[in-house]
């Protein structure tokens, strides 16, 4: 990205996305603020993007440890043994 202070909407939204993960630089945040001051659409985008971030935090959760069920393991075991026999031959 170039070093100019005035940016377009596509760049502004990208910075806003990075900012959702706290990975926008200070300079980028400054450029975003200036752009949002001038652009009502991106201002709205930024507000809604922050809402989406909260939403994902609340509703998308890490799955706890996941396991293979017994029948999956049995299938795996069978195919592995078969493959092992093929190789040993």
């Amino acid at each position: 990205m170039s070093k100019k202070i005035l940016i377009k909407c596509d760049e502004a939204t990208t910075i806003c996305d990075k900012n959702q993960y706290c990975e926008a630089s200070t300079f980028d945040k400054l450029r975003l603020s200036i752009h949002n001051f001038l652009c009502h659409r991106c201002r709205l985008y930024s507000e809604q993007n922050a809402t989406m971030t909260k939403l994902f935090k609340t509703h998308l959760k890490k799955n706890s440890e996941q396991h293979l069920c017994k029948s999956d393991k049995d299938d795996l075991q069978k195919s592995l043994e078969k493959e092992l026999n093929n190789i040993e031959k």
Binding site: K8, C9, D10, E11, R41, C42, L44, Y45, Q48, T51
Partner: peptide, 12 residues
């Protein structure tokens, strides 16, 4: 680089 009219954010 500007919003396409039909894709621009609208209020929720």
């Amino acid at each position: 680089g500007k919003w396409l009219e039909e894709r621009a954010p609208s209020s929720w």
